[in-house]
Design a protein around this nucleic acid. Structure first.
Length: 752
DNA sequence: CCCTAGACTTTTTTT
DNA sequence: AAGTCTAGGG
């Protein structure tokens, strides 16, 4: 029997299928294993796959789990093998989307509703703020959206928001007095556009089951077994959703680790897991405390760190693996030498590239490592950052699909109008949108018949508007009859997207054209895949709904080459690597500069805990004494967390070299006391770079030139900036002082 | 209306 | 550094 490979607690947790269970799973304790075995076990017990709902937090986790179950069932040669694909498994958001599409009409949406991503949402908020004449310096779209999102995650309606003293007080401190109204308008706009944002997917799902008892009953009947991974990262709405669906059978199994809760910034509430036992008094609790992944040194070092947190569930994670190598700590002069040092350590590493990961706090840190790895011909794979579907050219192209499927999608319309340029400008679209809002109709509708809505535009523009509306309407009609691939191909060719992109022969422009080609390929593959599943007709709407929640771009990059993995610590959750480098261990970076309160620092500490426990054999921490950030050099002291880790687990330094050295050196002194004070970022006005080479030019040093804006001046020098690889000219203007301009762009006139 | 050059701002993590 | 915003010229 396949349960033999589990330890006792694990097996018990797998087999306790009836009633609520809480599995507290320490890092590396085989949590995913228990979940996958549990599902496989259920299937083997004859539970139909369609009755099982498994919720994960990221796409990656869902994919991983699916693969593992597939493998497990294949090994077992199980009869359950075939039904595997009827499993309900995915992120909260993707499962909710699928369920919502079936019953969207009940909530006043069509089944083709659009999912607005963050940039769509921000754009809506920006428009609202502008219309209201709000100060853009204070009402930053991102900040406003964060407030709205927070409210939604806690199921607070706009009306409730307006009456909530605590929220209003917080807003007052940020000098935003109007969030409730903006929130209300925002919701109206989305509804009118037949669109939901990420949070709406969850909130509306909850509304659906709360307001429609039949749907609720049906889903409760269907999901007889519910499993939730990473339960410590669920927010209030997710908690309510799970609670509702689990009634009345209460076959709910949640898995999590409070020590790995790292998503409170998006509303995750650790109390969900802490209070589970109170919510389900009959729940069985399983504690998985033995770590199978890492060496004792790594586990103990991580423990010593996490014990510095005040709030935690009592739990002893231990390893019976080898003691293993000590944790290494490397100090570098700057970010570049850090990347250089890590790359050279990777090059000399005896293990395969697949076994190595470089983990960082922020996505922007990846660049330095990319450069150094490329220099050494070390293949790497980068996760996160701006995903394929966020790129401008892709978003532009997708907006044509979006509007064809959902003519109310105003954000898509605004994008489509702007690219490729067709003589309909911002001013005109401002009028169109104002008109659409006033008449409570889609912007597209206004464009169809501008005169009917008394749009104040000239006849020529009205004609352009009508023509474009007609084109989009035609696409809409076509999208229903044509296969996704044929449709996309048609859109690319008839709207001028392809021609415009191929016109640009700069290297970036070629990239963009290729990206769009790749999108077309992805659609072709999608259609082919569906065909294999026996679905003959795949309209573009199916592709859109599949793609809108997809964030990992290079999933289909299934090459066989071994690669080093580069990603944020957040993205690394749930993964493991033999060798892990955790870089940028500096104050104001890790922990992030934005945490001020203790609970935020504790979350960052948990984040480092997650990072360290990804390592199986070797873990190396590093920091730089100075690094380029936002175009300036920043000096930060080593992270306070370094002194939270018990010294005995570090490699003891044999000699202390005070000299700056490019090679990793043992840090002479770990900051001893906890430094509660944030050391401010020091700005160095003149970065210590000597990468400016004089180049020959028609503008001699000391010669007089004239600029159309800055007036006359004297050339100081002309040089090549090795960092940016731009040729620059520095001029001392008579009236405005010294300016540095791009040589190729500056429009200068020589004076003799 | 559209483009360009220059100024100005932004700072985390993800669905 | 990189992206967004704006003024001004075409």
């Amino acid at each position: 029997m396949f349960l033999d490979s589990l330890n006792e607690v694990q097996r018990a947790a797998v087999c306790a299928t009836e009633g609520p269970s809480l599995i507290v799973a320490g890092a590396g304790s085989g949590k995913t294993r228990v979940l996958t075995y549990r599902i496989a076990y259920l299937l083997q017990q004859g539970v139909p796959a369609g009755n099982i709902l498994a919720l994960t937090f990221t796409n990656k986790a869902a994919r991983e789990m699916k693969d593992r179950i597939r493998t497990l069932l294949a090994e077992q040669d199980s009869i359950a093998n075939g039904s595997f694909r009827y499993l309900w498994m995915g992120t909260f958001h993707s499962v909710c989307t699928k369920l919502l599409r079936r019953d969207a009409e009940r909530l006043g949406y069509t089944r083709d509703f659009t999912i607005y991503d963050t940039s769509d949402s921000k754009s809506v908020i920006k428009a609202i703020c502008k219309e209201r004449g709000a100060d853009e310096k204070i009402y930053k779209p991102q900040a406003v959206l964060a407030r709205i999102s927070m409210a939604k995650n806690n199921l607070i309606t706009p009306e409730e928001y307006g009456m909530n003293r605590q929220l209003l007080q917080q807003d007052r401190e940020a000098r935003m007095y109007d969030i409730a109204t903006i929130y209300a308008q925002y919701q109206l706009r989305l509804k009118a556009a037949n669109a939901m944002d990420f949070d709406d997917l969850l909130v509306n799902m909850l509304r659906l089951i709360d307001q429609h008892k039949d749907v609720c009953g049906q889903l409760q009947q269907m999901f007889r077994y519910i499993l939730v991974d990473e339960y410590q990262d669920t927010n209030y709405v997710q908690y309510l959703l799970v609670s509702r669906l689990a009634e009345p059978q209460r076959n709910i199994c949640v898995v999590g680790d409070d020590a790995q809760s790292i998503y409170s910034f998006r509303g995750a509430d650790i109390r969900n897991i802490l209070n589970f036992k109170q919510q389900y008094p009959e729940a069985r609790v399983y504690k998985l405390e033995r770590n199978y992944r890492s060496t004792q040194t790594i586990v103990n070092a991580a423990n010593s760190l996490i014990h510095k947190n005040i709030h935690q569930i009592e739990k002893t994670v231990y390893s019976e693996n080898e003691q293993g190598a000590p944790i290494r700590l490397c100090a570098y002069m700057d970010d570049r030498s850090e990347a250089d040092g890590v790359a050279s350590q990777i090059a000399n590493c005896r293990c395969g590239y697949d076994d190595v990961a470089v983990l960082y706090r922020t996505n922007t840190q990846s660049r330095a490592f990319e450069n150094e790895l490329r220099k050494r011909n070390i293949p790497y794979r980068i996760y996160g950052g701006t995903s394929f579907y966020q790129r401008k050219e892709i978003k532009d192209t997708l907006s044509y699909f979006r509007i064809a499927v959902n003519p109310l999608d105003n954000e898509a319309l605004l994008r489509a109008v702007a690219f490729p340029g067709r003589g309909i400008g911002e001013t005109t679209m401002k009028k169109v949108s104002a008109c659409g809002i006033e008449h409570h109709c889609a912007y597209l509708e206004v464009m169809r018949s501008p005169e009917q809505y008394a749009l104040p535009v000239g006849a020529a523009i009205a004609k352009k508007l009508r023509a474009f509306a007609q084109q989009l309407d035609d696409l809409g009609a076509l999208s229903e009859q044509t296969d996704a691939y044929a449709f996309a191909d048609h859109v690319l060719k008839t709207t001028g997207i392809l021609t415009t992109l191929t016109l640009d022969t700069t290297s970036d422009g070629i990239d963009r054209a290729q990206n769009v080609e790749e999108l077309l390929n992805a659609i072709r593959e999608f259609v082919a895949m569906r065909q294999e599943e026996g679905i003959d007709f795949t309209p573009i709407t199916d592709f859109l709904s599949e793609v809108s929640l997809q964030t990992d771009q290079d999933e289909h990059l299934d090459d066989t080459q071994e690669r080093v993995t580069l990603m944020t610590v957040h993205a690394a959750k749930g993964l493991e690597f033999k060798v892990v480098f955790i870089v940028g261990m500096e104050e104001n970076l890790f922990p992030s500069q934005f945490c001020t309160q203790m609970h935020e620092i504790e979350e960052e500490r948990r984040l480092l805990y997650v990072a360290i426990t990804r390592a199986m054999e070797q873990c190396t921490l590093s920091f730089a004494r100075q690094r380029f950030r936002n175009g300036q050099m920043a000096f930060n002291s080593p992270s306070r967390f370094l002194s939270d880790i018990d010294r005995q687990y570090f490699q003891q330094s044999s000699s202390t070299t005070p000299k700056p050295t490019p090679a990793p050196i043992a840090i002479p002194r770990i900051p001893s006391a906890i430094n509660n004070q944030h050391s401010p970022i020091t700005n160095n006005p003149s970065p210590i770079t000597n990468a400016h080479t004089p180049i020959p030019s028609e503008y001699a040093e000391g010669s007089r030139v004239a600029h159309r804006v800055f007036g006359q001046g004297t050339v100081v020098r002309v040089y090549r900036d090795e960092v940016t690889e731009n040729d620059k000219i520095e001029i001392r203007f008579d009236t405005v002082g010294v300016k540095t301009l791009l040589l190729t762009h500056a429009k200068l006139e020589k004076l003799d």
